[in-house]
Simulated assay, not measured.
Amino acid sequence: MAEILPESEALQRAVELLGAGAVVAIPTETVYGLSADATNGEAVARIYEAKGRPRFNPLIAHVADMEMAGKIAVFNPLARKLADAFWPGPLTMVLPQREGSGIHPLVTAGLDTIALRCPKGFATRAIAALGRPLAAPSANSSGRISATTAAAVEADLGTRIPLIVDGGATAVGLESTILKVEDGRLTLLRPGGVAAGDIERVAGLSLARGAKGIQAPGMLVSHYAPQASLRLNVDEVRGGEALLAFGPRRATGVDKAVVVRNLSESGDLREAAANLFSHLLALDGAGAAIIAVEPVPLAGLGEAINDRLARAAAPRDA
């Protein structure tokens, strides 16, 4: 089983393991990440092995600061403006990869662009101490619910990795927003912890949507899925279902639910985002075959919440 250390005691041990090519689960402000040295092909391959992740699905490279980022990717003025506004934080930018970046091709899955993010907290300290970027998808089996606590990582991946760094429950609770940045054009590839409207206000541009193909992590149709099936935007609960609720008003038939978890009693979307994955895990553990989900507004972080719910509800491979 994985060793679990509080982040206050874990930095030296984590950096030793990462430097040796091991995979370490670390906390970020979004969700827990399954991290490895992004310049080491064998280490990156261990991420794919631990997750059971398809190798055509690229990874985000995490950096400690703009100096490290500038050695990996080409930043136009718009990208620099967004980095100044949102880094460190839950924004990933897809940018042209710089020649000689040192990033192993497994990270980019053959693309000529790279997804970059500068996270907050322990992850940044670990990257700075290692001196190299970390590839770090969410710390869960591929396609399943992302982990927002160390306990959730242990339950899923505890037998596959040597160390889990415990930083408590993550603050944002959703993965980062992924944005492709080109001259004069911004394309939202995945909604996440930074709301689209906030990006548009900083950039002075509207975000394009509807990107085709796999251009970044988190774009698979079926993703973030519990064992149970999801039934979305319900106004009535059926017998034997678990209920993922939102806000103060309930769907009819709530008394038929085997268990209820409310993303936010007050209808606060930030609270709902932080609770999404932990509540889905709890409902999935109740044993119901179906999780009914009340409607969540699309505004602000609601776009990202609905994106994750739609992917969790999508048809999946057996």
Rank of each mutant, 00 (worst) to 15 (best):
P226Q: 01
A228Y: 11
S229C: 01
S229P: 00
L230F: 00
R231T: 03
R231M: 01
R231Q: 04
L232H: 02
L232P: 02
L232V: 00
N233M: 08
N233V: 07
N233F: 03
N233H: 03
E236I: 02
V237G: 09
V237K: 08
V237Y: 12
R238D: 13
R238S: 10
R238L: 14
G239A: 11
G239R: 13
G240T: 05
A242F: 14
A242E: 06
L243G: 03
L243Q: 03
L244T: 06
L244M: 07
A245D: 01
A245Y: 01
A245K: 13
F246L: 01
F246G: 02
F246V: 05
F246P: 06
F246Q: 03
G247E: 02
G247Y: 02
P248N: 00
R249D: 00
R250E: 13
R250P: 15
A251E: 09
A251S: 15
A251L: 13
A251I: 15
A251G: 10
A251D: 07
T252Y: 08
T252R: 06
T252W: 01
T252I: 09
T252S: 04
G253T: 05
V254D: 12
V254H: 09
V254N: 02
V254G: 11
K256A: 10
K256I: 14
K256H: 10
A257H: 14
A257G: 12
A257T: 14
V258Y: 09
V258D: 12
V259K: 06
V259G: 05
V259Q: 08
V260I: 07
V260Q: 02
V260K: 06
R261G: 12
R261E: 15
R261H: 11
R261I: 11
N262R: 09
N262M: 05
L263R: 04
S264K: 04
S264Q: 02
E265D: 03
S266C: 02
S266H: 05
S266W: 04
S266Q: 04
S266F: 01
S266E: 06
G267H: 03
G267F: 04
G267C: 09
G267L: 09
G267R: 05
G267N: 09
G267V: 09
D268P: 00
D268Q: 02
L269K: 03
R270V: 08
R270L: 04
A273I: 15
A274R: 11
A274H: 12
A274Q: 12
N275M: 14
N275L: 13
L276A: 06
L276Q: 05
L276I: 09
L276W: 06
L276G: 07
F277Y: 15
